[in-house]
Design a protein around this nucleic acid. Structure first.
Length: 885
RNA sequence: GGGAGCAUAGCUCAGCUGGUUUAGAGCAUCUGCCUUACAAGCAGAGGGUCCGCGGUUCGAACCCGUGUGCUCCCA
C-alpha cells in the first residue's frame, strides 16, 4: 500500500461519515445502559454555519463521542428553531423580491410561503454539521413548530394562564417601528450615538417666568404631561406645585418634584413624557399623570400629537427645532453623546411605547431555577457565570411574550367583539367559555389574537419536548433521556434561553433540564471584534473545511478556547491542526515502512515480555515500558480534565503526548538502524500504542483517527464505537527515568550546539555518576540520540572536554576538535551566577526560623533538596571552569 | 447609573488548595540542519517590572484593600 506524501482529508472524511451513518452508530434507543444526552441548541432555520456553531458543536461532539466510547448510550438530538422574527424577515424579503407585499396576503397565504421557504432553505445548517463530523442522531431531528411541539407550546400558554401566571397588560415596551413589533429588552442593542441636546424654555402658566429643560428628543414635547425637578434643587424650590405651558401646543402641565431627577444633568429640570420613555412612565404612574401617546405603530405622529400628524418621528425631530426657535422657546443646542437602542433584527431606532401585550410573571417560577444553580444541582462551567445568573434571577422582570408576527405559535386567546376574551386551545372551546357571559354571541363573531409568541417561549421547552415530554407525558423516551446531561451554549443567551429552560424544567417536568452547562466563549476575529455578517469578518466555514479538513478546523477552534473565555480566531490555528494531521500521517508512514521490513524477519524475542514491570535490558524495552507509563499517566490526566470540562487543555495534553512523547522521543528511541528490521514485538507494541493514541484523540479529531486506526491493522470494529479500557496506574519510577533521559539528551544536544559540534560529527561520552546501572539501561538510546560513538564511565574529570551537568551527574563530551574556551567560560560563569543567587535565596528561606517552624514538612524537605542540588551543581561548574584552565 | 469579568513573554493564553515556579505552553522570533516518516519537518536558543501602590503571611502571580486601563451584561 502506497501512502500519499501528505494527509488528504476530503475523501477520507466523506467516506467515514457515510460509514458511521450506515452502521447506525449515532442512533440511540433507550436500553439498559446509562444514557448520556445532549440536546443541540437549535440553530435558527435561517442559519448558516458560522464559527460560533463550529465551536459549539465541536464541543458537543467531543462530549458525545467520548461518552459513546465510555460505554454510555450517547444521544445527541439535532433540530432547528423556527426563529420567528428572523425567519419572518427573510420571508418578507423574499416576497418583496417577487413583488409581493406581506400586507397584500392573508395570514394563511403568508404562512404558506413561509413553510415553503422553510422546507427549501431551512436546515441547511444541519447538513453542514455533517461535514464537521457531528455525531447527531438524525432520526430525532426536531423543529420547534413540529405539530406536537406546537401543541405543547399552546398547552403551556394555557396552563400558565390558568395558573394566573400569564396576564395581559398595557406596559411600556420597546417598539420596532420597521417590523411593527414589540421587542424584548434583550433584542435591543444599545449603541453610542452622536446626538444633540436641545435646551427648551417652558413658560410658567400663571405668572411671569420660565423653566428650561434639556432633551435629545424634542418631538416628544408634544406628549409632555409634567415637568419634574429634584426636591433638593434650590434653583427650582419656588416652582414646586406650579404649572408650565408646553410650547407650540400650549398644554398646561404641572411641575412636580422627585428624587429621580439628577441635579447636574442638563438644567436639572426634566420633561416628563409618560407614553414614550420608560422612566417617565414610572413617574407618570407614581403621580398619575396623563398619558399622551403621540406615535402610531409605524413611528409616525398620531392625532394626539396635534402637530406633524402622519410624519415620521425622526423627521419631526428635525422640523420641530426651527419652530421652537421661531417661537422663541429654543435656548441653545449642545453636542451630546448618548446610548440609543436599536432593534437587533431591523436596526431601527427603538421607540419606547405603551402597548397591550401578553406577559409571563416571572418571580415565582424563577425561584426554584435560581436555587438549583446556587445549590449546584446544575453546574455552570465556568462557575463565574453563577454570579451573573444570580444577579439576573434575583432582579427578574416579567417576560413580554407577544410578538406582532405571523410566523410562530399563535397566541391561543379569542376575543369577543366587546374586547373580552378567553384563552383556550381551540376556537370552539373559547366560544364555550365566552358564551357564559355573552349568551348572544355566535362563533363567527369571535376572533383569535393575531400575535405570535416569542421564539424563546417555545425553545424553553426544548430539553424535554424533543422527547415529547408534554405531548406524551411520561413516555419511555422522556423517562430515559430526561434530564439531559450537558448543555453547551454561548453565555450571551444565558437569560434568553438557559435560565428559562431551567424554569420550564422545574415548572413542567418537576426536574432540572440538565446537570451541567458549559458556556463557550464568543468567537471574535484577530482584532477582537465579534464575528458578524455586517462586519464581513466571519470566514466561510465550509471553505475552511475544504482547505484544511474538518479535523484541522475542529482542532484549531478547540485548541484556543478555554471554557467561557472568548476566543480570538486566527487561521494559523487551523494550520497547526493541519500540520498535526500531517504529523500523524507521517508517523503512520514510518510504521508502515517498519511493518514491511519486519515481515521479512522473524523475531526471537519472547512475546510474553512483561511490560508492566520490565527489566529494561534493551533500549526498546526501556522505551516501550516508559511509553506505556506515559500513556497511563496522560489518560488519567485527560480524564480529569474532561471531567472538569477543560477541553482545550485535554486536547493540548494529547497533542503534546503524540507529537513530543510519541513521535519525537519514543519513535526515535525504538527506531532501528538504517534499513534494519524492527523487532516484531516492539512493532506490535508500537501499533497498539498508536491505536490507543487514536482512541484518545478520536473525540476531538474523529476522521483521521478512524482512518489511521484502520490503516494500522485489520480491525474487527470501528474506532467510533470502540470501548475504552479502564484507567491504569502509572509507575513514577519509570517516568522519572524517562524524564532524566530526556533531560540528559537535551542538555548534551545543547552543549553540542553551543560548541558548534555538527550533528554528523560523533562524540565520545564519559559519564560520571554514582548510579551506573541506571545509565547502562539507557545508554544505547542516549548514544543514538546524541550521536556518541562511545559511552564510558569515569570516576574523575576528563580533561579537554565539554562538561555538562544534569542533576548530580556529569557528562564529558570528547569532540576531537578545538574548544572555544572563551564562550564556554562565559556560559559557565553565567550559569554559576544564576546558581549562586538561587542557592542564596534557598538558604535565606531555610535560615528563617519562622519558615522552618511553620511550613509543611514536604516544603522544607524540598527546599533542602534544592539547596543540596544547587550546591552540587555549583561544584560541577567550578570544576568545569578549572577544567577549562 | 447598576452589575459581572479581565490585566502574566511580541501575540493568544495556562498557572486549580499561597510553598515543586528568580513563572509555563502554543504561535511568532533567532541559530543550526534539504539527517532515509514528516521543511506542513528536525535539533536547540532567546524573550517576563506576573498593570501600579499598599496590606495580610515565615512565604503572594495567587488572598485583602486601593488606583488605573480594557471587555461584557443590564437600565
Amino acid at each position: 500500500m502506497e501512502l500519499t506524501k501528505n494527509y488528504i482529508p476530503n475523501e477520507v472524511e466523506a467516506k467515514w461519515y457515510a460509514h458511521w451513518l450506515e452502521q447506525g452508530y449515532f442512533t440511540s434507543k433507550p436500553d439498559e445502559r446509562e444514557p448520556y444526552t445532549v440536546v443541540i441548541p437549535p440553530p435558527n432555520v435561517t442559519g448558516v454555519l458560522h464559527m460560533g456553531h463550529c465551536l459549539n458543536n465541536s464541543i458537543q461532539d467531543i462530549l458525545i463521542r467520548r461518552a459513546r466510547m465510555q460505554g454510555k448510550n450517547a444521544c445527541w438530538v439535532p433540530g432547528t428553531d423556527h426563529a420567528s422574527i428572523a425567519t419572518e424577515a427573510k420571508v418578507v424579503a423574499m416576497l418583496r423580491e417577487r413583488g409581493i407585499t406581506k400586507s397584500s396576503l392573508t395570514r394563511d397565504e403568508f404562512l404558506g410561503y413561509a413553510w415553503e421557504w422553510k422546507e427549501k432553505y431551512g436546515g441547511i445548517i444541519l447538513q453542514q454539521l455533517k461535514k464537521m463530523g457531528c455525531s447527531l442522531d438524525w432520526d430525532r431531528t426536531s423543529f420547534t413548530m413540529d405539530p406536537d411541539y406546537y401543541q405543547s407550546v399552546i398547552r403551556v400558554f394555557i396552563d400558565l394562564y390558568g395558573k394566573g401566571m400569564i396576564y395581559r397588560g398595557k406596559r411600556m415596551i420597546n417598539w420596532d417601528v420597521k417590523a411593527k413589533t414589540a421587542l424584548s429588552d434583550e433584542e435591543v442593542i444599545y449603541k453610542e450615538v452622536q446626538s444633540k441636546l436641545y435646551y427648551v424654555r417652558y413658560e410658567l402658566a400663571d405668572e411671569e417666568g420660565d423653566i428650561v429643560i434639556a432633551t435629545v428628543r424634542p418631538e416628544t414635547i408634544l406628549g409632555d404631561s409634567a415637568i419634574c425637578v429634584n426636591p433638593a434643587d434650590e434653583r427650582y424650590k419656588h416652582l414646586h406645585g406650579k404649572y408650565a405651558i408646553v410650547p407650540l401646543i400650549n398644554r398646561r402641565i404641572p411641575i412636580i418634584a422627585d428624587d429621580y431627577v439628577t441635579l447636574d444633568f442638563g438644567t436639572g429640570a426634566l420633561k416628563v413624557t409618560p407614553a414614550h420613555d420608560m422612566n417617565d412612565y414610572q413617574l407618570g404612574q407614581k403621580y398619575q399623570l396623563e398619558i399622551i401617546d403621540t406615535m402610531n405603530d409605524d413611528g409616525t405622529m398620531s392625532e394626539a400629537a396635534q402637530l406633524f400628524v402622519g410624519e415620521d418621528r425622526l423627521d419631526v425631530r428635525k422640523k420641530i427645532v426651527p419652530q421652537l426657535e421661531a417661537s422663541g422657546h429654543l435656548v441653545k443646542v449642545e453636542e451630546y453623546t448618548n446610548q440609543v437602542g436599536f432593534s437587533e433584527r431591523t436596526d431601527a431606532m427603538v421607540e419606547p411605547r405603551l402597548s397591550l401585550q401578553w406577559w409571563v410573571s416571572m418571580k415565582e417560577i424563577a425561584e426554584p431555577a435560581l436555587k438549583a444553580v446556587m445549590d449546584d444541582e446544575i453546574h455552570f462551567h465556568p462557575a463565574k457565570f453563577k454570579n451573573l445568573y444570580r444577579h439576573w434571577m434575583e432582579n427578574i422582570k416579567d417576560w413580554c411574550i407577544s410578538r406582532q408576527l405571523w410566523w410562530g405559535h399563535r397566541i391561543p386567546a379569542y376575543y369577543a367583539p366587546d374586547g373580552s376574551f378567553a384563552v383556550a386551545s381551540t376556537k370552539e372551546e373559547a366560544f364555550e367559555q365566552l358564551k357564559i357571559n355573552h349568551p348572544q354571541l355566535t362563533i363567527e363573531e369571535i376572533k383569535q389574537d393575531d400575535d405570535c409568541l416569542d421564539t424563546w417561549f417555545s425553545s424553553w421547552l426544548w430539553p424535554f419536548e424533543v422527547f415529547k415530554g408534554l405531548a406524551e407525558p411520561g413516555n419511555a423516551e422522556v423517562n430515559y433521556y430526561y434530564p439531559t446531561n450537558t448543555l453547551v451554549t454561548a453565555p450571551e443567551i444565558i437569560f434568553f434561553w438557559v435560565a428559562r429552560m431551567i424554569m420550564a424544567g422545574f415548572e413542567f417536568m418537576d426536574e432540572k433540564p440538565f446537570a451541567d452547562v458549559y458556556f463557550t466563549g464568543i468567537v471574535r476575529d484577530k482584532l477582537g471584534r465579534k464575528m458578524s455578517k455586517s462586519l464581513g469578518n466571519s470566514p466561510d466555514l465550509l471553505a475552511l473545511i475544504d482547505l484544511y479538513g474538518a479535523d484541522a478546523v475542529r482542532f484549531g477552534i478547540m485548541i484556543a478556547s478555554p471554557a467561557g473565555n472568548d476566543i480570538l480566531f486566527d487561521e494559523s490555528a487551523l494550520e497547526q491542526g493541519r500540520n498535526f494531521n500531517n504529523k500523524l500521517w507521517n508517523a503512520l508512514k514510518l510504521l508502515k515502512m517498519w511493518e514491511a521490513r519486519s515481515k521479512r524477519e522473524t523475531s526471537d524475542v519472547n512475546p510474553e515480555l512483561n511490560l508492566t514491570h520490565p527489566s529494561p535490558h534493551t533500549p526498546q524495552d526501556f522505551a516501550s515500558a516508559w511509553f506505556r507509563q506515559r500513556l497511563n499517566k496522560v489518560k488519567a490526566e485527560v480524564d480529569e480534565m474532561m471531567r472538569q470540562f477543560r477541553l482545550n487543555e485535554a486536547l493540548k495534553t494529547i497533542y503534546s503526548l503524540i507529537w513530543d512523547d510519541f513521535c519525537s522521543w519514543y519513535l526515535e528511541w525504538i527506531k532501528p538502524g538504517f534499513e534494519q528490521p524492527i523487532d516484531a514485538v516492539v512493532y506490535a507494541q508500537t501499533v497498539a500504542y498508536f491505536e490507543e493514541l487514536m482512541e484518545l484523540l478520536h473525540p476531538f479529531m474523529p476522521f483521521i483517527t478512524e482512518e489511521i486506526y484502520h490503516l494500522l491493522a485489520e480491525q474487527a470494529d470501528d474506532l467510533c464505537i470502540k470501548q475504552q479500557q479502564p484507567l491504569a496506574n502509572a509507575d513514577p519510577a519509570i517516568l522519572e527515568a524517562g524524564e532524566l533521559l530526556k533531560q540528559v539528551i537535551s542538555a548534551l544536544r545543547d552543549a553540542r550546539n553551543k560548541n558548534q559540534v555538527k550533528p554528523k560529527d560523533p562524540i565520545k561520552l564519559h559519564i560520571q555518576t554514582t548510579d551506573t546501572a541506571n545509565y547502562r539501561a539507557i545508554e544505547n538510546i542516549l548514544g543514538k540520540q546524541v550521536n556518541a560513538e562511545l559511552i564510558a564511565y569515569t570516576e574523575t574529570t576528563v580533561p579537554g572536554t565539554i562538561v555538562v551537568a544534569v542533576e548530580k551527574d556529569r557528562f564529558f563530551l570528547e569532540t576531537g576538535q578545538q574548544l572555544n574556551s572563551e564562550t564556554l567560560q562565559a556560559e559557565l560563569l553565567k550559569d554559576l551566577d544564576y546558581q549562586q543567587k538561587f542557592l542564596q535565596s534557598v538558604q535565606k528561606k531555610l535560615s528563617n526560623e519562622r519558615f522552618v517552624q511553620n511550613a509543611k514538612e514536604e516544603v522544607i524537605a524540598l527546599e533542602r533538596k534544592k539547596q543540596a542540588d544547587a550546591g552540587a551543581r555549583i561544584e560541577t561548574i567550578k570544576e568545569s571552569l578549572r577544567n577549562l584552565g
